[in-house]
Design a protein around this nucleic acid. Structure first.
Lengths: 381, 381
DNA sequence: TTGTAAGCGTTATCAC
DNA sequence: GTGATAACGCTTACAA
């Protein structure tokens, strides 16, 4: 009685305003829902004739495949991996290293059949944007290591989601993808030492969420929460214990310029070599040096870190530690995949490759107590 | 009978290996599931005492809130908006305009309580990554206008998802966010015309998915599928109908360099002004000009498009059309929000602002039939 | 190869 | 303010 004897299956017993469901399709095709489901998932063999009938019915009803929401509830998987960045997207993607990493990551999770949901670690109570606490994700990748990462980590753990950390320490339970920051930085420092440099300064990434610029004292170093910064600094200090430490507020060319001005314009003794903790910072330092009439590498050597292509470096080739950024991302994706498969993912430590460029050279022979003359007098009143 | 008289609620009638559900919490708290649900959603008033009991039970059971998958099935919303990019992520995020747009977009969708899922328009059958066809998203934002966008559009429409297009034409049904490309380009051209330029070339974005570099003939222009490219070109041709057209394969400084070399090294007559369709291209053109010993703007004027900050431009300030990239993204987010709310979102057309910089100047006075001498002889054998 | 049936964990609705 | 009930749309043992 509920099904009026209409002129065929094209008059099914359902509200036409409603979207068709797989049950509708099955009914129209005269098969069971499970068969229809299998036709779409391909998880079991189906007779070709049956398949055709189901597809035809689907086309007829405008059914375009299983509702992902229902499927993910049933399967217990959403096919989405959250990536938690510690900053504004614009900022995150300004950093070529992060971009490369993201690329590897999307690759990595794609093999697992997942997509990447961008999340910020400060998207909290205020807005009702999907947070780590509410997003339908299967796993989480944490990038960076700000203080807020602890919060993120707590949420993730209480949700019981697999998690991988890139460049950060989340305890032994959590697999991490890291770099031999200390060793690579040490190598750069030794390179400069071999060239005879003694008055060396280093321009670092931020030490903490405050991201304050300028000279840094021991206290702040000790209290720093950003692992990478400290590791790279430690590597340098092994070689140059008394290195002057200037912090930037982020990995940008402009920040490098600011730090460089501080180093070169200041009245004190100028360094003959600057070890920047990123290529972008290094590019800025070089620019600042040139602003002050200093030649690179004749008057001052500058090294970077990352091994990315930096625009605006002119003909310089940066002496730097090349890190496998894309691979790092891919490794994170793989680790997530493994955890989702129930395996235990191990932490991975990647190795940087030292690359000698044209921005480092022999230390200038000392003429006086001071550094080379500022040929353009920019720093003078 | 099913609940053994254990020593209290901490011995609930459930498999302890399973994650607690809201039903478990409700049972432990001695309330109904609906009440427990309301405690978490806050969608209805609950007595404080009840609330406390539920929260306590949740804490006890390690329940951290509703399962997003189940909630999204029930609600019919996943809180996720897909963003379809026409390229590799790394490539997409290399483009400052896109990054800025993405930023605005995440802002825009956040007001709606949604996150952004990154999708590529070629992530198809091959892998089983979540595609437009299978991702649990509430709405879709299409960026760009490659040929593959049509496919994406078909999928989206058959799924009945709200969709917004940024910089592309998807028919009148689909709200779009666009720019006054033609007018803005025309303005730049008139600016150069006013400065006396006659031999003008333009370096364009790609015309089609092939992205072939080099001089372009009428046929290819006519067959071009990329709206932006054509619109900006049209604007220029209104003023300079015979402009030489050189296509790049993307908005990159390097591409600008290649195009610039073609223009400046070639034996033919050199342009006195180059209208690049993006700031990055313009930066490359400038670099190429300087390679060839040409001064900007004395020997050749160069204009860009976008108004982003370009690193590596030295002291130049680009003459360009400044587009409101972040606003575009936010507008897309807003449009999606409106559509999700059942309203009909209108298309929006943003306006660029002409900015005169230091890279454009009066046309050099003609000395011979040829362009200024290549002072460094780079182009000579 | 196909069908039956039992959920997946929530939340909207409505009655109390 | 709280509770019973019925979906939401699908998948997958298991049985036939």
């Amino acid at each position: 009685m509920t099904t009026p004897p209409g002129p065929g299956p094209e008059t099914p017993d359902r509200d036409p305003a409603r979207r068709a469901t797989i049950a509708d399709v099955a009914r129209a095709a005269g098969v069971s829902p499970s068969t229809a489901s299998v036709v779409f998932s391909g998880k079991a063999p189906v007779a070709e004739a049956t398949r055709q009938r189901v597809m035809a019915a689907a086309a007829e009803l405008g059914y375009t495949g299983p509702d992902p929401r229902a499927a993910s509830l049933r399967r217990g998987r959403s096919g989405i991996v959250a990536v938690v960045l510690e900053e504004h997207l614009r900022t995150a993607f300004l950093d070529p290293v992060k971009t490369a990493m993201m690329d590897g990551l999307t690759d990595g999770v794609a093999t697992l059949g997942a997509g990447v949901l961008l999340l910020r670690d400060d998207a909290d109570a205020g807005s009702d944007a999907p947070t780590l606490a509410t997003a339908p994700v299967d796993a989480v990748v944490l990038i960076g290591c700000s203080g807020r990462m602890r919060t993120a980590l707590d949420i993730v753990r209480s949700r019981g989601l697999p998690v991988v950390v890139i460049e950060g320490d989340a305890g032994d339970e959590v697999p991490r993808i890291e770099l031999d920051n200390r060793e690579a930085a040490g190598q750069l420092a030794r390179h400069l030492q071999g060239l005879g440099h003694e008055r060396v300064a280093t321009v670092t990434l931020p030490f903490d969420v405050e991201r304050r610029r300028g000279d840094v004292d021991e206290d702040r170093i000790a209290q720093g929460t950003v692992e990478v910064t400290r590791e790279r600094l430690d590597g340098v200090r092994e070689v140059f214990p008394d290195v002057r430490v200037v912090a930037s507020s982020g990995s940008f060319i402009d920040e490098g310029v600011l730090a460089g001005r501080l180093l070169f314009a200041g009245g004190g003794t100028r360094p003959t070599a600057v070890i920047a903790q990123s290529d972008l910072l290094a590019a800025g330092v070089i620019r600042a040096a040139e602003e002050h009439g200093l030649r690179v590498p004749e008057d001052v050597s500058v090294t970077g870190f990352d091994g990315i292509r930096v625009d605006g470096l002119g003909s310089h080739v940066l002496t730097t530690a090349v890190q496998p950024a894309v691979e790092k991302g891919r490794a994170a994706g793989d680790a997530v995949a493994r955890m989702l498969a129930g395996e235990r993912a191990a932490s991975i430590r990647f190795t940087c490759v030292f690359r000698e460029g044209t921005t480092s050279g022999p230390a200038p022979t000392k003429t006086a107590d001071d550094a080379p003359v500022d040929r353009r007098g920019v720093g003078d009143p």
